[in-house]
């Protein structure tokens, strides 16, 4: 389990990357880290891996601090957004290297995965494409046998087939050896498929930190045509409306609350039509960030 308490990190005098973040990452869950650009996702992950040292607060991995602690670091494998490999190295070189670094590194598995992913063991990594390098980094990470696999935008460079492949390997390792992947990504569609828990960061703070299922249960998307416009005015006082849009008489609302609570309200008023629709992670993201001023309308050219 990873406990993050009141974490703060500044890069320059005025640039606060993390501002008192607190999160809990449970074991054998896929933790998805999403956030606006510059929200502090990569900084948080680097602190989790012991690359950066926080200015305040603490990160405890299985109850121990991580910075400059090789014992704890052997439980963590970090796949950065731009993985680095030795110059002129081949996958075989990297496999041998990591096998000396990580006590639980499984060479056979690494070789098998390389074969499965059609990566030539002896070819120079410098000749690999960006996606192939990411595949290699994922294979090395999985083979390291580490308990926590921290992926920074790892899925973004993989093709759909490889993404599915990686997802299934993750699922298998979670089941077999209790691996906990922590994935930061902008591809919310991918995260929606794989994640159990989501942390949403914005400007160095946490906007949301919930199980994905709970998150979906607590936020509803409703389409409705009102018979009486007065009911529309009362809506805001009865429900927590995050966002609303209008197309002709058809109105679409994003509302925080349980399905029962929302459904009961709409049944109690006079509508021509209303329907509660499933909400995607992307819609939740947009709604939540819009509330704090991260509004897509600002970017639309007038």
């Amino acid at each position: 389990m990873i406990e993050i308490n009141a974490l703060e990190k500044k890069f320059e005098e005025k640039l606060k990357a993390l501002d008192g973040i607190s999160l809990l990452i449970r074991e054998q869950q896929v933790f998805g880290l999403i956030g606006t650009n510059g929200a502090g996702k990569s900084t948080l992950l680097r602190i989790l891996c012991g690359i950066l040292k926080q200015d305040a607060g603490e990160v405890l991995v299985d109850g121990q601090t991580v910075y400059d602690n090789p014992k704890v670091k052997s439980l963590i494998f970090f796949i950065s957004d731009e993985p680095w490999f030795f110059r002129n190295a081949s996958p075989a070189t990297m496999k041998n290297y990591y096998s000396q670094i990580y006590p639980a590194f499984d060479k056979t598995r690494c070789e098998n995965l390389l074969r499965d992913f059609s990566l030539d063991m002896d070819r120079k990594i410098s000749t690999f494409s960006k996606g192939m390098k990411k595949q290699l980094a994922v294979i090395l990470g999985i083979s390291s046998g580490s308990k926590y696999l921290i992926c920074d935008e790892t899925f973004d460079g993989l093709d759909p087939v490889m993404r599915q492949g990686v997802k299934s390997i993750f699922a298998n390792d979670m089941l077999e050896r209790g691996m906990t992947p922590i994935i930061a990504s902008h591809n919310l569609r991918e995260l929606e498929d794989i994640c159990d828990h989501i942390g949403l960061l914005h400007q160095g703070g946490v906007l949301l930190n919930e199980d994905l299922d709970n998150m979906k249960l607590n936020i509803q998307k409703v389409q409705a045509v009102f018979s009486d416009e007065n009911d529309l005015e009362n809506l805001n006082s009865h429900l927590h409306v995050l966002k609303q849009q209008q197309t002709g008489r058809l109105r679409t609302f994003t509302i925080r609350g349980s399905r029962e609570e929302v459904e009961e309200y709409f049944r109690g008023i006079s509508t021509v039509y209303f329907e509660i629709l499933p909400l995607t992670l992307e819609e939740i993201f947009i709604s939540e960030t819009e509330v704090v001023g991260y509004d897509v309308k600002k970017f639309i050219l007038h």
């Binding site: 680097r46 891996c49 012991g50 690359i51 090789p70 014992k71 704890v72 670091k73 052997s74 963590i76 494998f77 970090f78 950065s80 731009e82 993985p83 680095w84 490999f85 670094i101 990580y102």
Partner: peptide, 10 residues
């Protein structure tokens, strides 16, 4: 990038 590589290792 190299710092990410080396400093994340145990």
């Amino acid at each position: 990038r190299e710092i990410d590589f080396f400093e994340s290792q145990p």
